[in-house]
Amino acid sequence: MLDETAFDLRKYLRRNSASVTVWIALLALILFGLMRYDNFGSAYNFSSFLNYNAMFIAIALGMCFVIMTGGIDLSVGSVAAFTSVVAAYLSPYGIQVALPGAVLAGVGFGAINAFCIIILRIPPFIATLATMLAAKGGALVISGAQTISVDWGSNFTKLGMGQAFGLFPWAIVIVAGLTLALWLVLERTTIGRTVLAIGGSEDASNLMGLKVNRAKAFVYLLSGGCAGLAGVFLASGFGAGQPLEGIGWELSAIASVVVGGTLLTGGMGSIPATVAGALLLGLVFNVLNFENGQGTISFSAYWQMVIRGGFLFAVILLQSRVIARQQKVLG
């Protein structure tokens, strides 16, 4: 009799071969940074890096769920811009109002997406593209195309700048909690497994009697909410609502998810590897900043993008090689 409870490293590596690469790449880049730059491993760099990337991680987490159903959410960047303005407007009432308010606004956009996709049966790509334009326009309208300064007197900026328990920035704590919660949802709850089943085959899921629509609604609401949260981080981290921000964020999020080994067609995915993917993407910029600081070579912002793209390509190429080899070796 087979014993599936015993831990089998070969089996584990084979099942997770898609996401193993991202961890290796991340570790390699961290080691590279540690060896090459003096302050790379400083607590300050560590915490400010995570703090800045918290919003990207949040968005990638929501995107991961959407992609696992075989869908896509292009609206996240604009929604984050919109909710950063909402958060800024609500900041005088304190974090306890601004945070839920902005997240709810994000969930609202998610609800529009869900409605269009599930009830009106519009393909996700088109539905969320429309929402992306609407949210962008909406952000410009409510802000008058100006950055909206937050109320520095309230406790709102603590979120992006203060420390939890005097140790970590709040944003990091919140995102870590969110990661754990979503990991649990994916691996251990019915709705998480339904998400994966839908991505594997929506027809089959329907015929199996799974609650397909409920799970699809969940992922778009979640993605909207995560974008809302990212908006809060944006506003509190920079002290202002930023209606013009968020351009291209959806693509970074998709890249994080894919680098993390999640199938773009759905059905398979990993939460921790998605976080690793988002960190990897951010870390490339961080390393390039340090490199520029060294003064030997200097990369312009444009070149940084090119380098990041090339790096991503290399990781994904490596990933597909690893998967192909694993499948060959282990049958």
Binding site: R193, L196, A197, G199, G200, S201, D203, A204, S205, L207, M208, L263, G267, M268
Partner: peptide
């Protein structure tokens, strides 16, 4: 009508 990507158990 099954989902090939997911485990037998699922």
């Amino acid at each position: 009508n099954l989902v090939p990507l997911r485990s037998v158990t699922e």
